[in-house]
Computed example of a mutant assay.
Amino acid sequence: MIIDSRTMESEDEESSLGPESEDEDSELSDNALQEAFAKGMLKPGMNVLVEAPKKFVNNVEGLRHCLAGFRKDLPWVERLDMTNLPAEDVIFKAEGKVTSGKPGGANADDDFQREMFFYRQAQATVLDALPILNKHGIATKRPDDYFAEMSKSDQQMQKIRKKLIAKELILEKSEKAKKLREQRKFGKKVQVEVIQKRQKEKRLMMTAVKKYQKGDKKKGGKDAPKASPASKKAADKHGPNAKRKFKDQKFGFGGKKSGKKWNTKESHNDVSSFRAKVANAKGNKGAKKGAKGGKQNKRPGKSVRKKTKARS
């Protein structure tokens, strides 16, 4: 193989001056673009990126090959795949309407029709799958004594149980506290009522005692029995008692009571009852001296009076 030394030198020079020459070319191109833009040579729409049309490849053989690689020859019990048309609509049949069992028969924009189509298709699939499952000996009903395994562990359930018990205790405490508050309020109310009742009874008793002391009532506040007409007639026959007579004599009985001691012209001029000795304290000095000296009779003491009464 023969290699020309000139070509080697030219390649070395290009490799050594490669980056600098690219920078210079870019600077020249930028300057040229600026000059062209200043002259008005550049117009919109000149520099447009045009994408090449995308080619869609429908490789049917390759897709089939991939599908064959995914597909496995498994029994139906492992796959449980079924393709069914929707079951017959009983309501439409009763109304006399004809419905097509094909998927195109339902309006895809109508939510109700679409959901009913899925429901009837699932119903038809169940009706077709139950005999096949029974044929393969697969149970389709849950036994009466079936207990499902818990998805949570016993430790987690114990934690939940503790939390529930704590919540119940908190609720019980709050209920007890609420009842105690209500009982205290009720107790205070009852206590106030009892105190008010006692005070009322005390006031009534005091008023009864005062009336009894005044003579309005007798026997612990009970009303005194009214006097009968016969007792009144007897009291009128006997007349007032000595105490009433004395008060009538002293204070008067009926009529005008005020102004009795006022002087009048006659009483002012009447001097018949005037006594000079008594008014001037002259005369009868011996009587005073006798009173001071103890010659006047004095009332005996209490003990002496008791003795005299006992003797008599």
Rank of each mutant, 00 (worst) to 15 (best):
D81C: 08
R79N: 12
K93M: 08
A87Y: 05
L127A: 07
A108T: 01
R120W: 05
D89T: 02
A148D: 10
A124I: 03
Q121A: 11
A148Q: 15
R79G: 14
A87C: 02
P86G: 07
E115G: 08
L80G: 00
T125Y: 06
K141P: 03
K97T: 02
A139G: 07
G105N: 10
R79A: 12
F117P: 00
T83K: 05
T99K: 13
D73I: 15
R120S: 03
L127W: 01
F118A: 11
A94I: 13
D111V: 15
T140F: 01
Y119I: 10
D128L: 08
P86H: 04
G101V: 01
P131W: 06
A87H: 11
P143R: 11
E88C: 03
D73W: 09
A139K: 11
Q113G: 04
A87S: 12
F112Q: 10
F92H: 08
G105W: 06
D81Q: 12
G137Y: 05
F118N: 11
K141R: 13
G104A: 05
D73L: 15
F117W: 12
R120H: 12
I91W: 00
L127F: 09
L133N: 07
R114E: 09
Q121F: 01
K102A: 07
T83S: 10
M82W: 13
A106C: 04
G101Y: 00
M82F: 06
V77E: 12
G104H: 03
A122I: 09
K141L: 09
I132L: 09
A124G: 02
D109P: 00
T140K: 05
A94V: 14
F112V: 13
F118V: 08
G96C: 03
A124P: 04
V98R: 10
I138R: 04
N107F: 09
G96S: 04
D89M: 06
D110V: 01
A122R: 12
F92I: 08
P131R: 14
P86A: 08
L74R: 15
F118M: 08
A106S: 06
K141W: 08
K97M: 03
Q123N: 11
A94P: 00
G105E: 13
Y119V: 06
K97I: 06
P143E: 07
A108N: 11
D111K: 15
F118E: 11
L130A: 02
F147L: 14
L127S: 07
G101P: 01
D109V: 05
I138H: 04
I138D: 01
D144W: 09
D144T: 15
K135N: 13
D109M: 15
D145A: 08
F147A: 12
E95G: 03
P103L: 03
A106R: 05
P75W: 06
N84C: 09
V90Y: 02
P131L: 02
K93I: 11
L80S: 04
Q121N: 07
L74E: 15
I132E: 09
T125G: 13
